[in-house]
């Protein structure tokens, strides 16, 4: 039994009325009757009109927030298709967190199952890329432990290198996509069509027609090809880059914690391409190739401040 039963009833009533997807009046005479029992009408506005102000603000505020988080999905789909997508999304995933930041977390997966995926099969992967970028924008800073530098590595005894346990900074994500979403992202970025369509404020409720008129960007669909991407934040800015399979495998291992020796094995397997027993000369050549490749990878990770020493607590947890 709630401590304030009348208030509880009023809130659930109002919630149902203002979250109806087509507005209060469209839900039929029973809803209109409920609206009038809940809210006063006067000579300025009827109860239904008053509730519709809140119904509009509910939908348009959340849609505009998602449009700001997924501007390239909006650009690819167009305003009208995005509007319809979000109508369906909010019915399936009403916000359950106090932070608007979390609202779009389930959108990529939702797009994959939505009818929009029929005409835009790459859209869910593009949404995954945008969400990964959003998600690390305010992820934990790498301060304890701080990212490793070249000097940190150089200071180590060569004998310690192989057993050095490493991980990646918190503001880091790995993606393994079916479509080259990075190409779509780049195309839209270059065409300049992914500016956020509206601010997060109730002003959007005044001029929402404009959003639905946004045409699709007209960018060509990206190729359907396995695309691995790393996404990271450095000095407050978010970056992403398409990477090769061996780098993806190494970074995936690093997300769980791995030694340089383990990374060497991963790269070696990649260089040998899963070949069976090799001759001594061929094996030595491939080992050398693997060492050079790992060196190149480690250099780039250090350059981009991606690596940290695996902390004792992380080691215990894993």
């Amino acid at each position: 039994m709630p401590s304030a039963p009348e208030l509880s009833r009023a809130q659930r009533n109002l919630w149902d009325l203002i979250t109806a997807p087509e507005g209060v009046a469209s839900t039929g005479p029973e809803a209109i009757e409920r609206a009038r029992r809940l809210v006063r009408s006067d000579e300025r506005l009827d109860a239904v009109e008053r509730l519709d102000i809140y119904a509009n603000m509910y939908f348009y505020r959340l849609r505009d927030c998602l449009a700001e988080d997924f501007p390239k999905v909006v650009a690819m789909a167009g305003g009208a298709a995005f509007h319809n997508l979000i109508t369906d999304y909010l019915l399936a995933h009403p916000s359950s967190c106090w932070s608007l930041r979390e609202l779009g977390r389930a959108l990529p997966e939702f797009i994959a199952r939505h009818e929009l995926a029929g005409t835009h099969p790459f859209l869910a992967d593009l949404a995954l890329l945008e969400w990964a970028r959003d998600d690390i924008f305010d992820e934990t800073d790498a301060t304890d432990p701080a990212p490793l530098s070249r000097a940190d590595i150089a200071a180590l005894n060569p004998g310690q290198l192989d057993s050095l346990e490493l991980s990646v900074i918190p503001a880091f994500r790995l993606l393994d996509l079916e479509w080259d979403a990075a190409q779509a992202w780049r195309q839209i970025e270059r065409s300049g069509e992914a500016a956020p369509p509206a601010g997060i404020n109730s002003a959007a409720a005044v001029d929402h027609g404009h959003f639905e008129d946004l045409p699709p960007a007209g960018a060509a669909p990206p190729p359907r090809t396995q695309t691995r991407i790393r996404v990271w934040r450095r000095a407050g800015r978010v970056y992403h880059r398409v990477i090769e399979g061996d780098e993806h495998a190494c970074l995936e291992a690093l997300t769980r914690g791995a030694t340089l020796a383990r990374l060497g094995e991963i790269v070696f397997e990649s260089v040998t391409g899963g070949a069976g027993v090799l001759g001594v000369t061929a094996e030595r050549a491939r080992q050398q190739a693997a060492i050079r490749r790992l060196g190149t990878l480690v250099e780039s990770w250090l350059e981009e401040s991606l690596l940290v020493r695996l902390s004792a607590s992380a080691r215990t947890a894993s």
Binding site: P5, T19, Y58, S95
Partner: peptide
Amino acid sequence: CWTGVGGHNAHDLLPLPYTEETLAHVVD
């Protein structure tokens, strides 16, 4: 105000019914 009920959030500043029951609830 209130911003959500039933575990869901409207992310809007929704008005309250101004009753003695609401007053006691909010004050607490």
